[in-house]
C-alpha cells in the first residue's frame, strides 16, 4: 500500500478529535474527547462495553452525528449537527480516506465476493471494469481468498467473510481503516487468520484504529493503546505502559477481567 502518506498541509497528523461530545437521552457517550492520531500508526482502543468505543469510530466517518466539537481527517473537517449540507460533503470525503470494517461483516449478500469488491471502485471512483476486477483479484489474493472470488457471502466461513470485508474496504485505497470489533463474532480458531491480515496491513503503513478485546494483538501490534470508559480517555500510551503498568484502578480491574 502506498496510500499511507500523510495528507499535504497536515504533516504527521492524519486524524484528530476536537472536544467531541455525543450524548444519548441526556446521558453522555463521548464526553468532550480531544485526541490526535499520527498517520501510519496502529491504535488499539479498549475498554468496558458501553464506554463509547464504537460511537467514537462512527463519529469519525460521519455515520453518527454528534452535538459539539469536531472531527478532522486530513484537510476535511466534520462539525457538530446532522450529516447534511457541508457536513455531508465532508463525511463523503472522509469516508474516501477511512474505510470501515464491521463486527458483523455487512457484506452485500446479493453480490459475490469479487462483486462486493468492485462495486464501489466502479460506481464511486468511476474506475474502468477491467482495472477494478484486476485490483479486486489482487486484494483477494492478498487476504488469501482468490479461490473463493465467485462465492456468495453465505457460502463463506466467518473468517473468510471478514477477510473479504477487509479487502472490500481496501478496494477504495483508504489511508486508514476503522475496525469495529472485527474479530468478536468469530470462533477463536478463525480470529487468527483475520488478525494476521491486519498485522500485514500495519507493516504497509496504513493507519489502523481498532476497537478490540484482543489484548494479545494490542500488545504485539499496536503503537498506542487507548482505554475508553464512560466517554472519556482513561489511559493513553504505548502498550508496554498501558497494558503492563496501568495508572488507574479501573483499567487494572478491566484488564484482569479480560485476561481472566
Amino acid at each position: 500500500m502506498t496510500a499511507a502518506t500523510a495528507p499535504p498541509g497536515n504533516p504527521g497528523t492524519d486524524l484528530a478529535l476536537e472536544g467531541l461530545r455525543k450524548g444519548y437521552d441526556g446521558h453522555p457517550i463521548l464526553d468532550g474527547l480531544t485526541l490526535e492520531i499520527a498517520a501510519g500508526s496502529t491504535v488499539a482502543i479498549i475498554g468496558p462495553s458501553g464506554g463509547g468505543k464504537s460511537t467514537l469510530l462512527r463519529c469519525l466517518n460521519g455515520l453518527t452525528p454528534f452535538e459539539a466539537g469536531g472531527v478532522r481527517v486530513g484537510p476535511h473537517r466534520l462539525g457538530a449537527g446532522p450529516i447534511a449540507g457541508p457536513n455531508r460533503a465532508a463525511a463523503q470525503q472522509i469516508r474516501r480516506l477511512l474505510g470501515m470494517i464491521f463486527q458483523d461483516f455487512q457484506l452485500f449478500p446479493h453480490l459475490t465476493a469479487i462483486e462486493n469488491l468492485v462495486e464501489a471502485p466502479l460506481r464511486v471512483l468511476g474506475m474502468p471494469v477491467e482495472e477494478a476486477r484486476a485490483e479486486a483479484e489482487r486484494l483477494l489474493e492478498r487476504v488469501g481468498l482468490s479461490h473463493r472470488k465467485d462465492a456468495y457471502p453465505r457460502e463463506l466461513s466467518g473468517g473468510q467473510k471478514q477477510r473479504v470485508a477487509i479487502a472490500r474496504a481496501l478496494s477504495m485505497h483508504p489511508r486508514g481503516l476503522l475496525c469495529d470489533e472485527i474479530t468478536s463474532a468469530l470462533d477463536p480458531e478463525l480470529k487468527g487468520e483475520v488478525l494476521a491480515v491486519m498485522e500485514d496491513l500495519r507493516r504497509d503503513g496504513i493507519t489502523l484504529l481498532m476497537v478490540t478485546h484482543e489484548i494479545g494483538f494490542a500488545r504485539r501490534a499496536a503503537d498506542r493503546v487507548l482505554v475508553l470508559d464512560h466517554g472519556a480517555i482513561l489511559e493513553d500510551g504505548p502498550p508496554s505502559e498501558v497494558l503492563e503498568r496501568p495508572k488507574t484502578a479501573r483499567t487494572r480491574q478491566f484488564l484482569s477481567l479480560l485476561l481472566g
Binding site: 455515520l63 469516508r95 474516501r96 464491521f102 458483523d104 452485500f108 464501489a120 460506481r123 464511486v124
Partner: peptide
Amino acid sequence: VPYGQWEAAASLGMTGWLAFRRIILPQ
C-alpha cells in the same frame, strides 16, 4: 434490509441514492 447494509455502503463512499439502487433495492 438490515440498516447495517446502508452503513456498509456509506462507509465505501456511496451516496444514499447509489446505495439504495445498487445495494438495498436488489435485496
